[in-house]
Computed example of a mutant assay.
Amino acid sequence: MKDDFAPAVYILASARNGTLYVGTTSNLIRRVAQHRADHFDGFSSRYGTKTLVWFEMHATMEQAILREKRIKKWNRAWKLKLIEEANSAWRDLATDLGFDALR
């Protein structure tokens, strides 16, 4: 197993109460960098979801993928509640991982 293998589910937002993106990754730092650089065309790039507002680490990718699928099926109010419970200020959690604050 690689040292950088750390399964995570995460939510990015375009702004407080803005558009949300739910994803899964094996390396959260690398994936956040890719989102911020618009590395992939698609939903996240199109809607500007670059602020990391919530994440959850998992022991395996299987667990992370299952959790992501469940969260994606939730209604918006439940997703907002999940974010608010852990990050009521909608702070960019990526700054805790070494990223510069977004402007």
Rank of each mutant, 00 (worst) to 15 (best):
T95N: 01
K79E: 10
A77R: 14
R76E: 08
K73V: 05
E68M: 07
G98R: 01
S88G: 08
K69F: 04
R70E: 15
K73S: 14
E85R: 13
N75I: 08
A94Q: 03
N87S: 11
A64T: 01
R67Q: 08
N87C: 06
D96W: 02
A86T: 06
R91H: 11
D96S: 04
D96H: 02
S88A: 13
L97H: 11
A77V: 08
K73R: 13
W90G: 07
A94H: 07
E85I: 02
D96P: 00
I71M: 07
N87M: 07
D100I: 00
K79F: 03
K81G: 09
K79Y: 01
R76M: 14
D96A: 06
S88P: 12
G98F: 02
A64H: 04
E84W: 02
E68C: 02
I65H: 07
L97E: 09
E85G: 03
L93Y: 15
W90Y: 14
D96V: 05
E84D: 13
N75Q: 12
I83V: 09
R76L: 15
K69Q: 13
I65K: 14
S88N: 13
I65P: 00
A64F: 02
K73W: 08
A89F: 12
D92T: 11
A89P: 00
R70H: 08
R76H: 08
L82V: 02
D92Y: 01
R91V: 07
R91G: 09
L66E: 14
L66P: 00
S88Q: 13
G98M: 04
I83Q: 05
E85T: 11
I65Y: 05
K69V: 04
E85H: 09
A86R: 11
L80W: 10
I83S: 02
R91M: 12
I65M: 10
D100A: 07
T95W: 10
K73L: 15
N87D: 13
L93Q: 06
T95D: 05
F99A: 01
R91A: 15
R70D: 12
S88D: 12
E84A: 14
I83W: 06
A86S: 09
R70L: 15
A86V: 04
R91I: 08
W90I: 15
E84L: 10
E84F: 05
L97P: 03
L66I: 10
A94V: 08
L80Q: 14
D96T: 06
F99P: 00
K69H: 12
K73F: 13
K69S: 09
K79H: 02
A94N: 06
L66D: 09
F99I: 00
E68W: 05
S88Y: 10
L82E: 07
G98W: 00
T95I: 14
D92L: 01
F99E: 00
F99D: 01
A94W: 05
A77E: 13
E84R: 12
K72A: 12
E68D: 07
K69Y: 06
K81C: 11
K79R: 15
A94T: 05
W74V: 04
K81P: 00
W74T: 07
A77G: 08
K79T: 11
L80M: 12
N75G: 09
E68L: 08
L97N: 05
D92F: 02
G98Q: 07
K69P: 00
K72P: 01
N87E: 14
K72V: 06
A77H: 12
